[in-house]
Computed example of a mutant assay.
Amino acid sequence: MDTVAEIAVEVLKFVTPALFGLLGIKLVLDHQRKKDRQGQFDKIATTTLKETLPLRLSAYERVILFLERIKPPQLVGRVAPHPEQTPAQYQLALIASIREEFEHNIAQQVYISHQAWVGVMLARDETIAMLRAICQAMPEGASVRQYQEAILKHCNDPKDIPSYKAIFMLKGEVSRILIPQAQAQ
């Protein structure tokens, strides 16, 4: 019986270090595989970022351009009234222009943050509400010219223009996107 125990001890003397060696090799290989996968992920992420950054910046530019174009003073300068048009009819033409601009830029939401897109929609809706409120406040028989003047007067302070806040927010997001890019170079 002593010989079986002695043989077992002798076998364990050789097997135990071999098992620890194999375990060590397995741990090193697992760590290396994990490191390689992370490196591949980082490479893909960097490549994706380099490819999507121009698209994202272009989307922010287009959305800011949209917000600039729907500012009431710009709308009044761009959308010419037709002869004999009433303020209510002109208001509908202004709103149609806003909606057309929005539909033209709707795909940009894919490239900007959800919060930014909500800000854009809010600016659009508030601008439409402002145009409606100014039109409803016009006296009976007012001309389109008077309506245009009322719009311009209402927008004397840029902070009264709904697009102002949304543009400010978008510029902040673009800065946050560009700062890490500048630091990476």
Rank of each mutant, 00 (worst) to 15 (best):
T16V: 15
S143H: 02
K50R: 15
F14E: 13
E10G: 12
A184I: 07
Y60M: 04
A45S: 12
C135K: 10
V28H: 08
L170G: 01
I95Q: 13
P17T: 11
Q148A: 12
T3H: 04
V15T: 14
E10H: 13
V9N: 13
E100V: 10
V63E: 02
Q40V: 06
K71Q: 00
L55V: 08
V174N: 03
L19D: 02
P17M: 13
E68P: 04
S58D: 07
L53G: 02
I64Q: 04
H104F: 01
S163G: 15
R99Y: 14
L92R: 10
T48L: 13
I25K: 10
Q146I: 07
M169N: 09
L75R: 03
G119D: 02
T127E: 04
L27W: 02
E103W: 06
L152A: 05
K13G: 06
T46N: 07
S175E: 06
Q148S: 13
K159Q: 10
Q109T: 11
Y111W: 14
C135W: 05
A107L: 12
P17C: 12
K153E: 06
G21Y: 10
L75F: 01
I179T: 08
A59R: 00
K153G: 04
P83I: 12
A8Y: 07
A137D: 15
T46R: 10
A18S: 09
R145A: 06
R69L: 05
P180S: 02
G119R: 01
V11S: 06
E149F: 10
Y164W: 08
D2A: 05
D42M: 08
I106S: 07
V118Q: 14
I177G: 02
P73L: 04
K171D: 05
E100C: 13
Q146N: 10
K26C: 13
H114C: 11
L49K: 08
G77A: 12
K26I: 13
V118W: 12
L55S: 11
V144K: 00
I151Q: 03
A137S: 15
S97D: 15
Y111K: 12
Q91W: 06
A107K: 14
L170V: 03
I167N: 01
L23G: 04
L23W: 09
A59C: 03
Y90H: 12
L23I: 08
F41M: 12
I167E: 03
Y60L: 03
I44P: 03
Q148M: 15
G119C: 05
E103G: 11
E84I: 13
S58C: 09
V144L: 07
L94T: 04
A184N: 09
E68S: 12
R99G: 12
P158T: 09
I134K: 08
A59D: 04
E10D: 14
T86K: 14
I128E: 05
K159N: 09
L75Q: 00
P54L: 06
T46D: 07
Q183G: 09
Q146K: 09
D157A: 07
V110M: 15
M121Q: 14
V144Y: 00
L19R: 05
T127I: 01
E6L: 04
K171T: 07
Q32Y: 14
L178P: 01
A150R: 00
A45I: 09
E103R: 09
P72T: 08
A80F: 15
